[in-house]
Design a protein around this nucleic acid. Structure first.
Length: 568
DNA sequence: GCCGTTTTCGGCCCGACTGTTTTCAGTCG
């Protein structure tokens, strides 16, 4: 039995219970059980007694056993008989929750978006107690776009929005400090909306200036301290703003950074000490409210070190916080091993990239333009690769304090061969091998291609090992356990591609690589100078897999890195 | 439904906003 199916079943039961208007704590018990199972690192076969896991008791364990024995959950089956199949979908309509949907169904027989629309138009919804004119108007409006807007947006789509909003907020002088919060700050792969926390003594002025400067299509809510809009643009995201006083800012930022599970744990910790956490501070037993200068001071108050937003998942961060000082941070990074220049499909020259790398404070880096198979990217022939050498040597001559290495991002061809000969590869300092074609081959064939690359002594690293693009394509589905085993056997590096649209390897795979002792490189794959900043996203993403600095090759000194290449 | 070194019953994180109310329920994060 697939653990994922068990988790999904528990969550689905929670959804159905919600539509029945069940006790909210019972509903959340099923969600907690699902989360507890998901956070447990063991496979379902490895777990002897599920009730030993905190959050799983008699009821939820019965569902799990049912699934393990019959492949189905009889509880879910009977819920599905009671609750029409169309109702769970209606939960996605903003403003509708379980109780309202239950009422609409029981009183009016509403069981789909279409029947809801008809009931709204006929005026029947407006006559229900608790529903009024505005609710009907809002529902009809939501129904127009129902099913068209994405629920979650990949962070590479939201990055632009965040940059624009940052610029808007920078320009408002009444703002003392502000920050993006929410899943974007935690560097989640996808995000439902964008949250900002703003410190200001003049919230109303800030609200007016903010709404005047933002480009939005709709105001969802605009109170004295909370503003929510749908941003302009196709498939646009929501942006939420909270305005608090400067004293409240650190606790508000913490609160709205989440995750929800992390906050629940923090509040439990506070409660054990007779304290109460809210976004405005920490309430003491005598009713007074403590505030803090910084998030760090807030954590310290609870005898915890500063927990980076990336780690705030609500499970291991409270037990493993002694490891936090070992985790990789942007400040540890001394090089970037994957980037493109105008020689292939990059926007800047070797010299421009090199100067930008020095500007970032790195000690060394590798220029890795595409190889000739990739014609759409103007990939380099062995001859052009040779010509590029002059430019790289000239740069090194002009910057003796820095080491710009010669490399390539070489294609692994569909037939399993490599795009350069051993001779060409051996003339380079660093060879990346990667797949850019024939993604749909069967797994054995994909693995065959990767194996050829990994066992070649001149290849140093596999880039973006799964080829996924978040929310767009799944990649070529390699057998990751096998790939990691080969990387270990042949002494190769696996990449964490820091481009926010890739983030490949993903957290789960990074954890596997770390467990196997395979070195990882965090690279930007920059095609322009401004993409070198993706290193920040990459190091934060690596923290989510609890990767130590020592495991990351580009935190090593130039000497250590060269030693590794020469002795691998 | 889950949990328990004050507990096997009575809690379960906390607050803003909206729309419907006439003091609050529902939704959302």
């Amino acid at each position: 039995m697939n653990k994922k199916k068990i988790i999904n079943t528990l969550e689905t039961i929670a959804t159905y219970l919600e539509l029945k208007g069940e006790n909210p704590f019972k509903i959340s018990a099923f969600r907690k059980a699902a989360a507890a199972l998901e956070n447990d690192p063991r496979s379902i076969e490895e777990i002897e007694d599920v009730t030993k896991i905190k959050g799983i008791g008699k009821g939820t364990a019965a569902v799990i056993h049912d699934l393990l024995e019959t492949g189905e959950s009889s509880d879910l089956t009977s819920l599905k008989e009671e609750v029409p199949a169309g109702l769970p979908l209606l939960l996605k309509i903003p403003g509708l929750g379980g109780k309202k949907i239950a009422k609409l169904y029981q009183e009016l027989g509403v069981d789909s978006a279409d029947s809801l629309k008809a009931a709204c138009e006929s005026g029947k919804v407006g006559e229900l107690a608790g529903f009024g004119k505005k609710t009907v108007e809002k529902l009809l409006k939501e129904l127009e776009t129902f099913g068209q807007r994405s629920e979650r947006h990949p962070i590479w789509q939201l990055e632009e929005n965040v940059k624009e909003i940052n610029a808007v907020l920078e320009a408002i002088e009444e703002i003392e400090r502000f920050s993006v919060a929410g899943s974007f700050r935690r560097v989640a792969e996808t995000s439902k909306d964008i949250d900002f926390i703003i410190a200001s003594a003049q919230p109303l002025v800030v609200k007016d200036k903010l709404l005047a400067a933002l480009s939005y299509t709709e105001i969802v809510a605009a109170g004295d301290t909370k503003i929510s809009v749908i941003l302009a643009g196709d498939d646009a995201a929501n942006a939420d703003f909270r305005i608090v006083t400067d004293a409240e800012y650190p606790t508000a930022l913490h609160h709205f950074t989440g995750s929800k599970e992390h906050n629940v744990r923090m509040r439990q910790i506070a409660k054990e000490r007779d304290e109460k956490i809210s976004e405005y501070g920490v309430e003491q037993p005598d009713g007074s409210v403590l505030t803090f200068e910084t998030e760090k001071a807030f954590f310290n108050h609870f005898d915890l070190p500063f927990i980076p937003p990336t780690l705030r998942a609500g499970h291991t961060e409270f037990e493993r916080h002694a490891d936090i000082p070992h985790l990789v941070t942007l400040a540890d990074i001394r090089s970037d091993l994957h980037m493109h220049t105008t020689w292939s499909d990059g926007a800047h020259t070797v010299r421009e990239m090199g100067e930008a790398l020095i500007e970032r404070g790195y000690d060394y880096a590798v220029i890795t333009d595409h190889s000739h198979y990739l014609k759409v990217a103007n990939g380099l022939t062995p001859e052009r690769l040779e010509q590029q050498k002059e430019e790289i040597y000239a740069f090194n001559h002009a910057h003796p304090e820095f080491h710009l290495l010669r490399g390539t991002e070489m294609d692994i061809l569909p037939d399993g061969s490599l795009d350069f000969s051993d001779d060409v590869m051996s003339s380079l300092d660093f060879v990346i091998a990667s797949i850019h074609s024939s993604f749909s081959q069967p797994q054995e064939q994909i693995m065959e291609r990767l194996h050829t690359a990994l066992k070649n002594p001149h290849v140093d690293m596999i880039a973006h090992p799964t080829g996924r693009v978040i929310h767009q394509r799944d990649g070529y589905n390699p057998d990751m356990a096998q790939l990691i085993a080969w990387a270990k056997e042949y002494g190769k590096i696996l990449e964490l591609n820091a481009n926010p649209y890739r983030l490949d390897l993903c957290v789960e795979h990074l954890e596997m690589a770390a467990k196997a002792g395979v070195p990882v490189a965090i690279n930007t794959d920059a095609h322009a100078i401004e993409q070198l900043r993706y290193m920040d996203i990459g190091t934060k993403y690596a923290q989510k897999a609890w990767l130590y600095k020592d495991m990351i090759v580009n935190t090593w000194s130039f000497e250590k890195f060269m030693d590794f290449l020469n002795n691998k």
